[in-house]
Design a protein around this nucleic acid. Structure first.
Lengths: 352, 352
DNA sequence: GGGAATTTGATAGACGTCTATCACAATCTG
DNA sequence: CAGATTGTGATAGACGTCTATCAAATTCCC
């Protein structure tokens, strides 16, 4: 039968020291001679001792409290992120991890820094935030760090700040990936790409476009960039205009949000017309439907499920002052009509 | 400050019953009247009580022992799976989960069933197995289930068996995905696809091919299927012959293993020649290099990292006789040169 | 109403780790 | 060699849950 995994008492006995001493060694407390410390470590090795985290957590009855700040509003992607955090929160209650999920009006740096200050005041064990790269944000992050509260940026990085980690995709990589796929779709022939962004000042969108440009060969031209402010009505109007003005467009790359408007334009195209290839970001209900209906070709998704899991992982490790595991960026995932995941169960629940 | 999460004692007090009674309710033990049971549940609701899993695990000092059976041999994909399980095993020691990772010669149903019987004898708490759909395997799975040992099939399903779950991709979906990408790469033009499989009898490979055929339009022809037995020397020879025999081939889809041989053929193509588009499965060191070097175009990966995590998740839940969470198949992931993940740290370690 | 069956209460010990305290031994300092 | 410093041992209580046992209270049935 399985023998019981060794406990710290076993280690102490084997090392010929008391439990107290073994405990001092494993918890790095002072007052142990070099020699004893070595013999305890030897016993740990010999027995293959691993600290029982269940017992450790129990005895410390530690409760982790993390704050998550997301942009409010109707953006489908962030609604999904929020739903995933809500779900994670209820799941994590059993592990004594509590997530406070807060919303802040998008682009309102004032409100954002206010919330961050409030979380600092509440002495959270860690904060994750979707923030733009703005001096006020940087300062607010510094303030949290000064209070020894770890900070993780999510989806959109603030590289100039002292955040402990960034969880999200590399937008240049995402753009390059789209560039490759646009190239593939044209099968060596020339093309003309219509880029759609929220605003030219949005760093993520700009990075995506420049990534795409890096990869697209000289056979490609870019139409003037559409600035849809991430609002679907505006995107709809402007894309419709651009397409009718420029019939040479062979592909559309929407690097931002508001894609419901883009989809409407595509739906309204006269049947029989060869539509341009369409590439856009984030798997959400309306983009999914568009892909299933053959209105668009590719969705680049940043896997919010993975991002949420990683935020929690990072915050927990940081709260314990331990090293982070996976610090590589999230890989942008390519969805075509055929490899779409099953509809998340949450969608059904919400429908019912 | 954060108030302490409610314990079962709090629930008992609130419900006006003794701890013993509250315990009987939450652990579904007999001897509690309908009425008391309801009042305890009401208290649980009211207080938002969640059982402290750390304490529960500790008190039961339960040790999970799972057996994992993988095919032996030099196949790069399974070496990666094995490395991931090894890593998971050391990580999971802290959670009192022990993984016994066993190897069995590929395609040796005799040896496989032997190992499974041995794991049954060892009274494992669960078994995960990479098995072919074979009557002997089905019987061995039935035997494990008869002993109340949960069984999960991995990578390759045995649908006719009583396995509790399958963790892996849907190969038809993977094939369809490739079909879509081949179509995209040809940008509407006609093409001729060379399929490469291990053996026509390999169900996974056949499913992948038929998935591809479903999606490829009538503009595509298939060259005679190459049967490379998943051995790279044979793949190399046969693909080289096929390419020189049939210069009309515009794309290669390798649905099986032995792709090191395929890559060699591509490397040896006279420079300046337009090579066919190449699509193959599994991100492993040599396929990665080929993608980085521009010798191939797309890798379809089944994300063994995710599969390993899910096997552990499933086995743990099954051992606790709880419901599985995510039973949807793994989504085949598309890698092009641009969205490759960072080299796993393990690769560096092994190199060092 | 009396005996049996069922339901409830009270409580104790175990799981492995952490924290703390106190006492004693060994070593160092002047 | 006395006194201070440092290293070690012994032990106890807490964390929240689980299991078990025994006694007491309540309900049920004839």
């Amino acid at each position: 039968m399985t023998r019981r995994p060794p406990t710290l008492s076993d280690v102490a006995r084997r090392a010929g020291v008391s439990y107290a001493t073994a405990d001092r060694v494993v918890n790095g407390r002072a007052g142990v001679s070099e020699k004893t410390s070595r013999s305890v470590h030897a016993a740990i090795e010999a027995l293959g001792y691993v600290r029982n985290v269940a017992a450790a957590n129990l005895s410390q009855q530690r409760v982790y409290r993390f704050g998550i700040i997301l942009p409010a509003g109707s953006n489908a992607f962030f609604r999904r992120v929020q739903a995933l955090f809500d779900e994670a929160a209820s799941r994590l209650k059993a592990d004594r991890i509590s997530l406070s999920i807060e919303s802040v009006e998008a682009f309102d740096a004032q409100a954002l820094t206010g919330k961050m200050a409030a979380l600092a005041e509440a002495r959270m064990d860690g904060v994750a935030v979707v923030a733009s790269d703005d001096p006020r944000t940087t300062a607010a992050i510094a303030e949290l760090r000064a209070r020894n509260i770890p900070v993780v940026t999510l989806v959109s990085d603030v590289p100039s700040s002292q955040r402990d980690a960034y969880v999200g995709i590399d937008n240049v990589v995402a753009g390059r990936t789209v560039g490759r796929l646009i190239g593939m779709a044209h099968g060596g022939r020339a093309g003309r790409v219509l880029p759609v962004v929220g605003a030219p000042s949005a760093r993520d969108h700009a990075e995506r476009l420049s990534g795409m440009r890096e990869v697209l060969g000289s056979a490609f031209e870019l139409a003037p960039v559409v600035e849809g402010r991430d609002r679907f009505e505006l995107v709809e109007t402007l894309v419709r205009e651009a397409l009718s003005r420029d019939p040479e467009i062979t592909a559309i790359y929407s690097a931002g949000a508001g894609n419901a408007g883009l989809v409407r334009v595509l739906e309204a195209l006269p049947p029989g017309t060869a539509r341009p290839y369409v590439f856009l970001h984030e798997l959400v209900p309306h983009s999914r439907r568009a892909l299933e209906d053959g209105l668009i070709d590719v969705i680049i998704d940043q896997r919010p499920e993975e991002e949420v899991a990683r935020v929690v992982e990072h915050l927990t490790l940081l709260a314990d002052r331990r090293a982070l595991l996976r610090t590589d960026p999230i890989v942008p995932t390519i969805f075509v009509r055929e490899n779409l995941p099953q509809e998340p169960a949450g969608a059904l629940e919400r429908a019912g």
